[in-house]
């Protein structure tokens, strides 16, 4: 289970209100696409979910527990860039999550535990289509491969939430389609709740089972920072969700 509820959320920076009056109930297993013009708080909202920032007022609850205001292993993340570690090979990037978990002082596994982690990581890499590139460094991979690696890396700790910040923004159209298939398959298999920021409306509707549109309702022309954005549309795409669930059940 991983349902998310946002209650009376406000986010203010000095002289600027970014988000105001955000209330949201997301049942477990939804794929939420966050859309809206730039500078309207989508990424800020994702950072709040991530725990990178604290809301000024209100709160976010994961399974009715207040969200820890610090990034942690219950929330996986993929950014547009720099999500993978350049000094580790694909395989090392993926086992890192297990190494952090299993070795508190050295952050490294040895012997049988390392072999088990490597086998698990190899399987995850296979699942994202990087089975042939396990010993490459990220710099030797294309942008699409790096994003696959970032997803594989995020999945190894089995997060309740997967947060994606324009993960396909820098990819070409053909690669994007492949990434959509991969992401939807993994989402169905892992049954996690996904939040994805995108400024591509089509991408949002292709992938999401729910589209959340962020925009400013009130604008003060003499003081652009006076009012913040909120969720103007909360569109559950129920039909699509039902179809997907049947597909998953059929598998």
């Amino acid at each position: 289970m991983s349902n998310v509820s946002v209650r009376g959320l406000w986010m203010e920076y000095p002289n600027q209100v970014v988000l105001e009056r955000v209330d949201l109930e997301i049942p477990s297993g939804e794929f939420c696409a966050l859309v809206g013009p730039s500078g309207c708080g989508k990424t800020t909202f994702l950072r709040l979910l991530l725990g990178e920032e604290r809301p000024t007022r209100g709160g976010i609850f994961l399974d009715d527990q207040p969200l820890v205001a610090e990034p942690g292993p219950d929330r996986g993340v993929v950014f547009q860039r720099y999500s993978v570690f350049p000094h580790l090979t694909a395989l090392e990037n993926v086992i890192l999550g297990r190494e952090f978990e299993g070795s508190r002082f050295l952050g490294r596994l040895f012997g049988a535990r390392r072999r088990a982690a490597l086998a698990e990581a190899a399987a995850v890499l296979e699942a994202v289509g990087l089975g042939a590139h396990t010993h490459k460094y990220p710099a030797e991979m294309s942008g699409g491969m790096q994003q696959r690696l970032a997803i594989a890396q995020a999945l190894i700790r089995k997060p309740k939430l997967l947060l994606l910040d324009e993960p396909f923004g820098a990819l070409d159209a053909g690669t994007k389609v492949q990434m959509y298939e991969l992401l939807l398959r993994l989402w169905a298999e892992e049954r996690m709740t996904v939040f994805m920021v995108t400024h591509d409306l089509k991408e949002g509707f292709t992938l999401g089972t729910r589209v959340l549109a962020f925009d400013k309702v009130r604008v003060d022309p003499t003081d652009p920072g006076a009012y913040g954005a909120t969720i103007t549309y909360n569109l559950p795409l129920t039909e699509k969700k039902a179809v997907r669930e049947r597909l998953v059940a059929a598998d």
Binding site: P71, P73, R81, Y82, F85, F105
Partner: peptide, 26 residues
């Protein structure tokens, strides 16, 4: 990149583990 440090935290790393496995080698 801030992203790397956040990513490490979402993988469950403590500050010490981040120093040892992410920052120091780079």
């Amino acid at each position: 990149p801030r992203e790397q440090l956040i990513k490490a935290q979402t993988l469950g790393a403590s500050t010490w583990q981040i120093v040892l496995r992410v920052v120091l080698p780079q």
